[in-house]
Design a protein around this nucleic acid. Structure first.
Length: 260
DNA sequence: CTCCATGTTTAGAA
DNA sequence: CTTCTAAACATGGA
């Protein structure tokens, strides 16, 4: 699930539970998740330290290690963060488990192992190296419109390009375009100021609603596409059967009647 | 067995 | 150089 809203939920979970606890041990069950650092190196960076604060940029989560670097987490297609106590059970597919002095644990969970864990000097440095665009929720309307004016091609491809704007992926781009009533393949160059303003508003509304719904489609407003898509099929606006196409290399759901 | 999946990177084509 | 597509990554589920 990990697009911007999901990662924001992970960030808040870590923030409310796992800060300022002494790290006693780091177990790496899936070394393939680590990028540019060995299991021993990761343990050396973390053990006897504490997490001080968190930060998020797009789909990337950063955790400041006191008197040290930042832990940078990306979650791929199915990554998750689980926090559990002494009585809790280690989740399946826990690739990295951090044990705290209070008996609690933080686990990076992923079966497909498409995410990555690494150390960064600081978030800014990491964002620059990855060529990430501005965070979707930190972006103001003027900058958004200016970026869009420079963009080319299908609006969905542009919106999901992390080098343009960081945080929007396949699932939420469908929701944003549905709310903005824009066809996923609509050429960006044919969008006027009203279209772009509407797109910006929809992006903020969708991302903020998703965070408020704890990134759970079942808790989202019933006028959203997401719950309908889970249920399997009809436009919550006009009732037409939803259609699919391929855009930006991925399956795209949309309403041909409402989106142009 | 086949196909598909919420992400990213890379190779190759146009 | 830009843009797009397909494949690859690893694995589970329908």
């Amino acid at each position: 699930m990990p697009e911007l809203p999901d990662v924001e939920i992970y960030r808040r979970r870590l923030d409310s539970k796992a800060l300022n606890q002494a790290i006693e041990r780091v177990q790496v069950a899936a070394p393939a998740l680590l990028e540019g650092i060995s299991p021993r190196g990761l343990a050396r960076a973390l053990v006897r330290h504490r997490f001080a604060l968190t930060q998020r940029h797009g789909k990337h989560l950063f955790v400041r290690i006191d008197r040290g670097d930042w832990l940078a987490l990306h979650f791929g297609m199915d990554g998750d963060l689980a926090y559990y106590g002494p009585a809790g059970e280690r989740p399946s597919y826990a690739g990295v488990v951090i044990d705290f002095g209070n008996g609690f644990h933080l686990a990076y969970v992923s079966s497909r192992k498409l995410g990555r864990i690494t150390l960064a000097r600081d978030p800014h440095d990491y964002v620059a190296k990855k060529h990430l665009g501005p965070d979707a929720l930190a972006l103001d309307r003027k900058t958004f419109v200016a970026l869009a004016r420079r963009g080319r091609g299908a609006v969905k491809t542009w919106l999901t390009n992390q080098r343009v704007i960081a945080g929007v992926g396949n699932i939420y781009s469908d929701e944003i375009l549905f709310q903005a009533r824009l066809h996923p393949k609509r050429e960006l160059g044919t969008c006027n100021d009203a279209d772009l303003g509407h797109l910006f508003d929809s992006m903020r509304k969708v991302l903020r609603s998703a965070i408020a719904a704890r990134a759970d489609a079942r808790r989202m407003p019933h006028r959203f596409l997401l719950p309908a898509r889970l249920a399997g099929g009809y436009c919550p606006n006009c009732g037409a059967r939803l259609r699919t196409l391929r855009a930006a290399g991925r399956t795209t759901y949309f309403c041909a009647h409402c989106q142009h």
